[in-house]
């Protein structure tokens, strides 16, 4: 009897051995920095001594009108940035995928490549190129609009508070529309032809086929894409920084959480970096993303209906 229990409890070392590399690397690169950031956010620099102050930094971030104004401004801008991506990037990605999966489309692989190429470009190149295109002085945008008689529609968008953020969101959509397109395209390819043929036999063709057969089958992929977009957008920084600089002008109209974090953590010009407040912002960002992902995981994903293909 005792022997039997001992036998059952025999440690299965191979599991630990197989898991170890991943756990070690993940711990070193993700978990340790995460907790040291959290730790940093609970301290404050007082006369060059790191002093434990509990949640004081968070109280400043949300309680001090100056800090909280910047924070809510950045969060609001971030929400708009995300909204534009959800309203444009993902529907356009799905549309492009649906068009690409049409067997009668010619040059499909060319389009696929051409649309995907911007996603592998560096943010710096994208930011710089679009800044040049939209430049009121040297840009081709004013000339192109002039050629079709719409010069009056041109404005120095990147320099105007009302339009700058939307313009940058659209640039980002242009850059990343290839990602949802590819994922949805892959999902559409996994739908067996028999299912579609059966639908055709039942008289469901054309658009109806997409809405009634394909869309429900790719819904889980759309869910995943939404979460990826959410995480990427709330971690965004590069495009804004390369196009508008760390002050995220004009008048903080393009300030998102990433640039706010950068400015606070590392400082800017005469502003000296404040790693403690920066960590507090980083932690707030983590909580926002965690909340968003949790809502998806527990409220949305569990309700998605999956079909066995």
């Amino acid at each position: 009897m005792t022997d039997e229990i001992a036998g059952r409890r025999k440690t299965r070392w191979h599991i630990a051995v197989f898991l170890a590399p991943a756990i070690l690397v993940y711990t070193a690169l993700m978990i340790v920095p995460l907790f040291s950031t959290l730790k940093l956010s609970l301290f404050k620099d007082i006369d060059h001594q790191q002093v434990f102050v509990g949640l004081d930094n968070f109280r400043t971030l949300f309680g001090d009108p100056r800090w909280s104004k910047d924070f809510w401004n950045a969060l609001g801008n971030n929400l708009w940035f995300f909204t534009v991506h959800m309203l444009l990037q993902n529907p356009i990605g799905i549309l492009l995928a649906a068009l690409l999966s049409n067997p009668r489309l010619r040059f499909a692989s060319f389009y696929r490549t051409a649309i995907f190429v911007p996603t592998i470009l560096s943010f710096v190149i994208v930011g710089f190129t679009w800044k040049l295109i939209l430049s009121p002085i040297w840009g081709i945008a004013p000339n192109l609009l002039d050629a079709i008689g719409l010069k009056s529609l041109f404005a120095p968008w990147l320099g105007m508070e009302a339009y700058a953020l939307t313009t940058l969101s659209l640039i980002s959509v242009w850059q990343f529309v290839g990602i949802p397109m590819m994922l949805i395209y892959a999902a559409l390819l996994t739908i067996p032809d028999e299912v579609l043929e059966a639908a055709e036999c039942d008289g469901i063709t054309g658009m109806a086929q997409f809405w009634k057969i394909q869309l429900p089958l790719i819904l889980p992929s759309i869910g995943i894409i939404s979460v990826l977009t959410f995480v990427a957008n709330f971690n965004a920084f590069d495009l804004i920084y390369s196009a508008q600089g760390a002050l995220a002008g004009p008048n903080y109209a393009t300030d998102i959480l990433g640039t706010f974090l950068y400015r606070t953590f590392f400082g800017f010009q005469l502003q000296i970096g404040n790693p403690n407040m920066g960590s507090a912002i980083a932690f707030a960002m983590l909580m926002i993303i965690l909340t968003g992902v949790s809502i998806y995981l527990f409220a949305v994903q569990t309700r998605l209906r999956r079909y066995q293909l």
């Binding site: 800044k131 430049s135 009121p136 002085i137 404005a155 120095p156 320099g159």
Partner: peptide
Amino acid sequence: LGDGFEAQTYPDSQNL
């Protein structure tokens, strides 16, 4: 200031 000065960068001004 020139047309579109709102989006004019420092290198733009130098070049102008």
